[in-house]
Amino acid sequence: MIKSRYLKVLLVSMLSGTAYAESVFVTLEKDNALGIVEPVEGKLIKTVPIGVRPRGIALSPDNKVLYIATSDENTIKMFDAETFKELGKLPSGDDPETFALNPKGDRMYVSNEDDSMVTVIDIARKKAVKQIKVGVEPEGITVSPDNSWVISASETTNMVHWIDTKTNAIADNTLVDPRPRAVMFTADSQQLWVTSEMAGTLTIIDAKTKQITKNINFAVQGVTPEKIQPVGIVIDKDRKRGYVALGPANRVAVVNAQTFEVERYLLVGQRVWNLAFSPDQKRLYTTNGISNDLSIIDLDSQTVTKSIGVGTYPWGVAVKP
């Protein structure tokens, strides 16, 4: 009996130990560094110099390679995700900010904001294989989980472009609200979610028809509409809830992904920009650009549990199990 209880405790602690073994990587735009956070203790473990003005960040599907856009060096760097040793550079084009990997992890799509282009990179060959002309100031970019579509959102053209991954050509365009920022597919690739920073809205697009099915407005008591500038989006794998960072409104909106009602707003740090789930999707990490911290949201209780100072201008976030 005592033994079994002991075992249980041991098991639980082992389980939670495993569950929490993740590392949270945060690009620090003004520190030219990567912050590495251990989320249980809520501690910044270390800060690694990474290159000038790091912004977009992603892990390879096998979690071994970390890709970071060092914007002012006009490249996307590859790092060993354990040792942070630089493995190579990718020809991203000028001033790379955001990029996306395909599910296999052998192709990368980069937004070139100043040139109105999307660059397609063959990662194994470290070569740009195609440049696709898109609208003015492309920013948000994502690949559908079924690898059919690359979506590029152009901020000044106010469109999302549907790029066919087979042809690397635009197959369709959907006009959205002013200044679209982030784009994200649901796990089943059926819906595309788009945030529009200027309009303060979230738009849901049907991936089959490319038509808008829903437009969601955010309203936070005591915050003027101008401050509500939605940016980063994540949607849980069961499509129960989506989470939207509201920028200078300093909140994350919790959106019911079935009814599209906004369930609540969670107060995080200042100018919350990008979001990432823990691997078990029990926690959400947010980068808060102005308050220089990372907030941790416990998703079961839907509460903000911690905020951890990480460095100057935290921008992107990626989580390694």
């Binding site: 609208g135 003015v136 000044t156 053209t157």
Partner: peptide, 10 residues
């Protein structure tokens, strides 16, 4: 130029 870039899609 920006309008025309949008115009190519519309």
């Amino acid at each position: 130029k920006d309008n025309d870039t949008t115009g190519q899609f519309t």
